[in-house]
Amino acid sequence: MTTAASSEDAVRRVVVVGYDGSELLDIACVTSTLDLAVRIAGRALYRTELISPSGGAIRCDSGLELHATGSLRRTNGPIDTLVISGGRGHEAAADDPAIVAHVRRLAGLSRRVASVCTGATVLAAAGLLDGRRATTHWHYADVLARRYPSVTVDPRPIFIRDGRVATSAGVTSALDLTLALVTEDCGPDLARVVAQALVTYLQRPGNQAQMSVFTAPNPDHVLVRRAVAHVNSHLATTLDTATLAARCGVSARQLHRLFVEHLGMPPGQFVRRTRLDTAARLLATTGHPIGMIARWCGFTSLETLRQAFVAQYGVPPSQYRTVSSTAPVA
Rank of each mutant, 00 (worst) to 15 (best):
H67L: 12
H67Y: 01
A68C: 11
T69H: 08
G70C: 14
G70D: 13
L72D: 05
L72F: 06
R73I: 05
R74D: 15
R74F: 06
P78I: 15
T81P: 04
T81F: 08
T81I: 10
T81D: 08
L82A: 01
I84G: 02
I84Q: 01
S85M: 09
S85E: 06
R88Q: 11
G89Y: 10
H90D: 08
E91I: 11
A93E: 10
A94V: 03
D95F: 00
D95M: 05
D96V: 01
P97K: 05
A98F: 03
A98E: 12
V100P: 03
V100I: 02
A101D: 09
V103R: 00
R104M: 00
R104P: 02
R105Y: 02
R105M: 03
L106K: 10
A107R: 07
G108L: 13
S110I: 13
S110T: 12
S110E: 10
R111T: 15
R112W: 04
V113S: 11
A114N: 03
V116W: 02
C117P: 04
C117Y: 08
T121V: 13
T121F: 14
V122S: 05
L123A: 01
A125G: 09
A125Y: 02
G127N: 09
G131K: 12
R132Q: 13
R132G: 04
R132C: 05
A134M: 06
T135P: 04
T136N: 09
H137I: 13
Y140M: 12
Y140K: 13
A145V: 11
A145F: 12
R146I: 01
R146A: 15
R147W: 04
R147I: 05
P149M: 15
S150I: 03
V151Q: 11
V151M: 08
T152G: 07
T152S: 15
P155A: 04
P155R: 06
R156K: 07
I158G: 02
I158F: 00
I158D: 01
F159W: 14
